[in-house]
Design a protein around this nucleic acid. Structure first.
Length: 945
RNA sequence: GCAGGGGUAGCCAAGCUUGGUCAAAGGCAGCAGACUCAAGAUCUGCCCGCGUAGGCGUGCGGGGGUUCAAAUCCCCUCCCCUGCACCA
């Protein structure tokens, strides 16, 4: 606790003068390019699991790589503590909710004493941010902890206040009202994740059509399809429901009980005037709005008092429910319904005159309570909306597309006071976690970020166009998000956070207070040394925007100048990393805010989007307990194994799967690495004498260069998995072959192996720093973190040596296959290389391509070939296949290889492999051994005795 | 529904942009052998089918097409995953 306090607030010893800075606490430095990466900071409401581990390990690997490349690398970390979740958690713990107690007590193993303190939300974020820091340190993340902060720190809040004053001045924020899902019990807006039921329900805008009774009483019917007004035959009420007579904006309305509540929550002045039983309405007449046609009020069970206003107007021609309602009445012999016929007003291709009737018949709907009506309604509404047109006979709207007519009817009627708006859910019911049924409430005094603003969107697109987005496929997602984004409510009434200055009852919404904090990191370590009362707009204006003068910042000109300098040094950030589910909000928001507040030269440079984590193939989920805690993984496997696995299991943008068997394999792999390198370093070092090197030594050095090149290139493009394939598995495969191939006690071999081991340690250092540091100590006293990353040495690339080794490897495989197929155990092996004329033929085939006729024509003219045309034809065919198999490049590289020499050099190796003597015979123009005729370039003939 | 991503051998996963070098890297699991008192680790081989000579056949969700040639390009179709807002 004490230690943690120190960690997150107030000046720390690490900022004291004279303390030696580690490589992870960078300050601006001339002569070195800067590299600034940030990750979306965690919300510390629970323990870290291995999925979080990866999110922070990937950037660390990249950071270490760039540091070794000689760059000045900044990787900071803060904690996002604003928002409602921890408030909910503390409440649940306070009331002893068993699930919460299990999650925090058993799964996260929070000490009982601490758990008791969790009744205060701040304690939760305090505790877990300390845990995060501890885990991150254990994971060997090279984070600059001098700069850490929490979003509820007073200094940070000042920063957010400054940000919003800024946005307000630029008219990016405005006040309005907004409909939200609302729990009347909690008296709070609820998000989808807080719902027991109905999380797929959307808030939809219904049109209230005002039907009027004789005495002027308004019966407002809520509808999604105001254009169907022209097909209205009657009006529906629920006979067994009680309606409320209320005064709304000077009119007398009749609505259901729930309907009344909705009106009240949607900014209407509602005054109760009494109750009316639904049954008493039946039989009366109402006039339709706009057309003024009198229609009768009829009873129908299809009416749900909870939906809309509990009043429905009936369009039996186009609404399956209404159609069945009418049919039911007719069947019951209701006289009012007897002469009533559907009035069609929409024509849809594929349907007849009365579509509702048709679809009810098709689906075999029995009555108005038949569940099949849902499907019928959905299908018909969709078809009419997308393909329907209004009948030409309808005045003013005839001939219009349904979608078009709908908007026009709505607008026209609203303008004349014959219609109003009611928000309601698209699905029912919507139930809050507290088991209360939710309603739609219009929140007044809501504040918005104007993400819908076209010029702003345009700037964001511009910024994104100049950014590097990884993987490139996400670009379209980002652009789509920019287009789709609407204004964002940026204040909240509950939760932790920064008070919203224009309405102190609200706080800045958590996704809106985390969009430019990457800039804050550049000065965070200085901020904590400044007394809070000196932190004001003039400071941020100067440091972040260059406005004003350093003298007026209130913190002293030298410090102000220094902060300004540091901001300008680090900014813009080079890369931002985050999980892919933040693309459609945070990652896009932060680009919006950067373009709003900073000049273009400080706009983001790049984004890397992460995949999500799976656990043994199933989605990781804390609440379900399907997680491996990072702490446990670190204790069990150690940081190197965890890191290596997390970055090599998949590329960062792909989903990765934590599989125990795979993690254990990684552990073994790392053991082999350490063992191999240790073994090499143990051996007596050998001086470099070029004369000592054999072909196979040059082969290893040559391979080493391509491993180095590929490992660096792939890390440059964030392909951590591919990089590990090269830096680890590729290196291992080369070394394995090398040690199988040759006597490693030779001086030349010792020299080459030492070179390889040295490079190997450096290549692995970004992934497994602890093991590498241990090994590195035997080589150098310099710190590994800043040791130079290996560079491929072109002079050591030796295509000839690689071709020779490939010949040996292929020959080994050939022999193996023959032995396997025949089941023989050889007493001796004889290899025949191909004669010169076959090499000549190969060149001919590679020139002429697979056209055998052309090859033969040429062969007839070629001395050395024309004498043996009978042999040439089948050989040419095989060579075409060989070329096809190996590719021009490899065949070309092998050209000029002295095969007999190469194979003789490997004879000892081959006889060891196959436990028998191996002879190599050079090309023989007229061999006695029939098998020798099978020989081809790059594929010696093999005879087994 | 809209948008984005994906379906490759027992499993995971590369390859697909730039068609031939792909029976298709790598890993896991499995089998056999070497080492060992034994186990583990390590090394070697096998791991679609057939095959006593390095080969042949089938094959990359399903269907169709382009091409001398398709896992790779085009069209249609089925299935899976993610996001869709006032929530971090």
């Amino acid at each position: 606790m004490k230690k943690g306090k120190k960690a997150s607030a107030g000046p720390r010893s690490s900022t004291r003068k004279g303390r030696r800075r580690g490589p992870f606490e960078p300050d601006p430095r001339g002569g070195k390019p800067k590299f600034y990466i940030t990750v979306a900071y965690p919300y510390p409401s629970g323990a870290m699991h291995v999925g979080h581990g990866r999110t922070y390990t990937v950037p660390d690997v990249i950071a270490r790589f760039h540091r070794m490349r000689g760059e000045n690398v900044l990787y900071p970390m803060g904690f996002h503590c604003t928002g409602t979740p921890v408030v909910g958690i503390s409440e649940r713990i306070a009331r002893g909710d068993p699930k919460a107690l299990w999650l925090y007590g058993d799964l996260y193993r929070v000490p009982r004493k601490t758990l008791e303190e969790f009744v205060k939300p701040e304690t939760i974020v305090d505790y877990f941010s300390r845990e995060y820091r501890r885990n991150m340190t254990d994971l060997l993340l090279g984070i600059d902890w001098r700069r850490t902060f929490k979003t509820i720190d007073p200094h940070y809040k000042r920063f957010i206040e400054w940000q919003y004053r800024n946005l307000m001045a630029r008219e990016r924020v405005y006040r309005g009202e907004h409909p939200v899902k609302w729990c009347p019990n909690d008296r709070n807006a609820v998000g989808d994740h807080d719902l027991l039921q109905g999380d797929r329900a959307q808030v939809t805008e219904y049109t209230l059509l005002k039907f009027r009774m004789e005495d002027g009483t308004v019966l407002p019917a809520a509808t999604l399809r105001p254009e169907t007004l022209f097909g209205c035959t009657n009006f529906w009420v629920r006979a067994d429901a009680t309606y409320r007579k209320v005064k709304v904006n000077g009119e007398t309305w009749l609505v259901s009980g729930p309907g009344r509540e909705k009106l009240e929550n949607q900014q209407k002045q509602v005054e109760d005037l009494g109750e009316v039983p639904g049954g008493s309405l039946v039989g009366k007449m109402v006039k339709t709005p706009h057309t003024g046609k009198p229609v009768p009020i009829l009873p129908a069970p299809l009416v749900d008092p909870k939906v809309g206003t509990g009043l429905v107007f009936s369009v039996p021609a186009h609404a399956p429910y209404d159609y069945m309602g009418l049919m039911d009445l007719k069947k019951a012999g209701d006289p009012a319904a007897a002469g009533m016929e559907p009035i069609p007003l929409i024509a849809v291709e594929g349907y007849g005159r009365v579509p509702a009737e048709e679809i009810c018949r098709q689906l075999n709907v029995g009555s108005q309570t038949d569940p099949k009506l849902e499907e019928a309604t959905e299908t018909l509404y969709h078809d009419e909306f997308t393909r329907g047109t209004v009948n030409p006979g309808i005045p003013a709207y005839g001939g219009m597309k349904v979608a078009q007519a709908r908007e026009k009817v709505k607008a026209d009627l609203r303008a004349r006071g014959e219609a109003d708006i009611l928000y309601d859910f698209s699905m029912f019911p919507v139930v809050c976690r507290c088991n209360t049924e939710c309603i739609v409430k219009i929140l007044p005094d809501q504040w918005f970020l104007k993400y819908s603003d076209p010029p702003w969107k345009q700037r964001v697109k511009e910024a994104m166009g100049a950014m590097r987005l990884v993987p490139p496929e996400v670009a379209s997602q980002f652009l789509h998000t920019v287009d789709w984004l609407d204004d964002w409510a940026c204040t909240r009434r509950v939760g932790l956070g920064t008070t919203f200055q224009w309405d102190p009852a609200q706080i800045v919404e958590p996704l809106s207070d985390s969009v430019i904090y990457m800039a804050y990191y550049t000065i965070a370590h200085h901020m904590r040394t400044i007394p809070l009362e000196k932190v004001g707009d003039s400071l941020f204006d100067y440091v972040l925007l260059g406005k004003g003068t350093p003298e007026k910042t209130g913190v002293g000109a030298p410090l102000a100048r220094r902060m300004r300098g540091e901001f300008r040094y680090w900014y813009p950030y080079d890369w931002r990393f985050s999980a892919k589910d933040l693309v459609s909000n945070h990652l896009t928001f932060q680009v919006f805010h950067h373009t709003a507040i900073f000049p273009a030269k400080f706009w983001p440079r790049g984004i890397v989007v992460f995949g999500i984590g799976l656990l043994e193939g199933a989605k990781m989920s804390s609440s379900k307990g399907n997680v491996v805690l990072l702490d446990d993984a670190l204790k069990q496997y150690g940081p190197d194994v965890v890191r290596l696995f997390l970055v090599s299991a998949a590329e960062p943008w792909q989903d990765f799967d934590w599989r125990q068997s795979a993690v254990e394999a990684t552990r073994e792999a790392l053991r082999r690495f350490e063992k191999t390198v240790t073994g090499i370093l143990h051996a007596k070092p050998a001086p470099a004498r070029p004369g000592d090197l054999e072909a196979v030594d040059r082969w290893l050095l040559s391979r080493l260069q391509s491993r180095i090149r590929l490992a660096g290139d792939t890390l440059d493009s964030f392909q951590t998995r591919q990089a590990v394939q090269q830096a680890f598995y590729g290196m291992e495969a080369d070394l394995r072959w090398y040690r199988r191939r040759t006597d490693t006690r030779r001086p030349g071999a010792r020299f080459v192996l030492r070179e390889a081991a040295r490079a190997w340690i450096l290549l692995m250092a970004p992934f497994t720093p602890r093991a590498c540091a241990r090994l590195w100590k035997r080589i150098s006293a310099a710190p590994l973190e800043t040791a130079p990353y290996p560079r491929a040495d072109r002079r050591r690339v030796d295509p000839r040596a690689e071709a020779a080794e490939e010949l040996i490897e292929r020959t080994t495989q050939d022999i193996q296959e023959i032995l396997r197929v025949t089941g023989k155990t050889p007493r001796s092996l004889v290899l025949y290389t191909a004669p010169e004329w076959k090499h000549r033929l190969l060149r001919l085939v590679s020139q002429k391509g697979p056209d055998i006729k052309a090859v033969m024509a040429e062969a007839q003219k070629t001395p050395g070939l024309r004498e043996r045309l009978g042999e040439v034809a089948p050989a040419a065919k095989k060579m075409a296949a060989l070329l096809h198999d190996l590719g021009e490049e490899r065949v070309g590289r092998a050209r000029g290889l002295r095969e007999p020499e190469v194979l003789r050099g490997a004879a000892l190796f081959l006889s060891r492999e196959f436990h028998c003597p191996v002879e190599v015979h050079p090309a023989d123009e007229s061999p006695q051994d029939a098998r020798a005729r099978e020989s081809l370039p790059l594929r010696p003939a093999v005879t087994i005795f």
